[in-house]
Structure formats: structure tokens, C-alpha cells
Design a protein around this nucleic acid. Sequence first.
DNA 1: TCTGGGGTCCTAGGACCC
DNA 2: TCTGGGGTCCTAGGACCC
Length: 391
Amino acid sequence: MLYIHTAMNTSIPRRIAHLDMDAFFASVELLHYPELRGQAVVVGGRSVHQPVLQPDGSHRFSRLRDYVGRGVVTTSTYEARALGIFSAMGLMKSAQLAPEAILLPANFDAYRDYSRHFKAAVASIAPCIEDRGIDEIFIDLSDIPEDSLPLARRIKQAVFDATGLTCSIGITPNKLLAKICSDLDKPDGITLLGRDEIPSRIWPLAAKKINGIGPKANERLAQMGIATIGELAAAPVERLVCYFGRTMGTWLHEVAHGIDERPIKTSREPKSISRESTFQRDLHAKQDRAELSEAFTSICLRVADDLARKGYVARTIGIKLRYADFQAVTRDITLPMPTADGREIRQAAGECLKRVPLHQRIRLLGVRASTLLPATAIDRQPTAFQTELPL
DNA sequence: TCTGGGGTCCTAGGACCC
DNA sequence: TCTGGGGTCCTAGGACCC
């Protein structure tokens, strides 16, 4: 029962790795600015704080205390984390904790480049890879005849040779445990774990270490007197179902026992493509109408551009607003025919906007395209549903 | 001076159909 | 006269992740 069916339909235990780049964005920046090594460095904010090249060839860097605006921390070096600065923290708040920390703007083109390189390096050793974003991957090592420790070392070396960057790897029987384990010995670590070690090494960990248990679920667990994964494992499944519903309750019970049979997905189709923008100041629908309208159109055109570049058309167009009080609302509309056209997207998004209250000032505006189809599959005929409609 | 941007998945109610 | 039941689509909101 501890085994899963592989593609060959034989029951062998899987060997799944999770690889996580160490402080990825910040580490890429340190490759470009090695003089910052050992310092508290923060990546984030709007790109108005580029380092300035001095006449003597050195760089003048912005400090956190100089930042003004609505940015958040994207990544920070381990030195900055030691000062209490973590991802998603407001920059203005982090400036209070570490005013002298160096602030660098995010350079996503460079990170994407390094991302491709580290993934290619891993693929040269282990090709069965699931993308988990720019800085992490799952790898199915089941079919590779090499012991886990030397294999992990070889993968880490390949990543370092290709990028100059370190990563941390967890190797376990499934994705859930691998994700937990890659975080246990960071940075530059390797963690191997077998099923028999779940009680001793997983159960003492906080429940929120499980991917999928966020702040809300953690708070509800705390109300039940559950803080660790072990306490979650000891809870009767009926009690969890009672608190969280059937789906979430049974899932919590399973993951606490280290059960996770999700396969490695080596490719997937996108479900939605979206763009959003937080304004530097909150805008009013009437007083700032021109500014708002221009931003709205620009966002729609960017979505259209993204659709075209990626080769998709969308049947559903939606908007997202965040008001000054941070409350968010969404509206969407499904079109009779899929589109990737900027004007049609702007038109549909405009219809959505009419259905939203606009007395409060607006902090954020976003546009989303969903129900995607490959552009090649479409000759812009009405869908079957439409053609069958009686006149 | 709080709180980015790009995603996925789940829930839930109503419409609509058989 | 207390009036099914299941399936799918559409819409809105929210939790969560990187």
C-alpha cells in the first residue's frame, strides 16, 4: 500500500526530488554585484533605484531607507532575513527594520535566463521535471540507477557549473515530503528521507510547513489545538472533515501521514493569463477618469499581447479591482467567440467594469483572460453552443 | 507609509437542461 | 401542493503558492 503505479504499471516506490534555488533573485544579483556579498540585500520595489555607476568604476547603491512607495520585498539575502526581512513584506516596513540594507530593483529577464540554465542543467541528468515557477522544480528520479546522495550532489554541481548558484534538494518518496525536505537544510543542503522517518523527522514540524496549509488553515488548526504535523496526524479524520469539509479534511489527514500520490507533470496548459497594476496613489473613478481609463486600456493591450505571444485565445474576460481599503472585487464575462484582440478585450472588460461599485478610490486594476484555447484550434466560428441557438 | 504581480484550485449558488 | 435529481456552465469570492 506504500507503493504507487508507475507508467509501466509496476509497483515500485517512487523517488521524487524537490530542488529549490537558494535566495534565487538575490543570489543572481550578487553574481552581478559581488562586492555586496555578505551584506543585507533586498530585491523589490519599482525599478527606480538602479545602482549608479560611479566615475571610479564602483556602484552607488540605494538603501532601504531611501525608498518611497508601495513596493514589497521580492527576495532578500540570508543576511537581510537575519534582520527580520522576508518576502512580501512592505518595503517601507522593512526599511524600519534595516534602513541601511541595500535595495536592488528586480530584473526578471535575468532571473528567467538563469532559470532556464539551471533547469537545462538538471534536465541533462534527470529529464523528468515538473516546473514549479522560476526558482524551483520537482524531479522524478525513480528511473535513474544511482544512489540518492551522489545523484543529489551531481545535480547540485551541474546547477552550480551552469549558473554559479547554489540550491537545496530534498529526495523522498513523493512531492509533498520532497517539498518539505528541500527546506530543512537551507542553503546549499541535501535532505534524504524515507517513509520510516516520517514520525521522527516530519511530525515534529509545524503544520504550516505543509504546502497548502496557509495562514487561515493554520489558524483554524490552532483553534483545534493542533500545531504540529504529528498532532494533525493524530487527529481523527472525522474531526478534520467536520471542521474543514470532506475534501480538505481528508487531504489534511493524508498529508499528515506523508501520503501524496500526485505524479510529476512535465507539461501543462495555462488556465489564465492576466495583468494587474497597483497605482502609486489611489485613483477616483470620476476625478481621475482619464488616468484610470488610460491604465485600463494599457492593461487590456498587455493581456492581448501576452495571449498573442503565447498563442492562445480566451472566451472569458474578467477584471479585478482593489479598493483603497484593500477589499477586492472581480467581475467576468464569457464571450460567444474567443478572442485575443485588444479592442475586444477592452470592450468586454469595460462591460465588467460597469457592474462594479465605483464610489471608493481604486488601488489596483487588473484584467484576466481565461477559458483559454490554442489560437491554432480556432477559426473564429461561433462555438457549437452558439450555432445551435434558435434564432 | 501597511500590504506586488502572476498564477492554481476550491466552493457555492443560480441558470438551464434532461 | 410542498414541489426530484443529476450534470454542466457561468459567475464571484477566497485561500494559497512562488
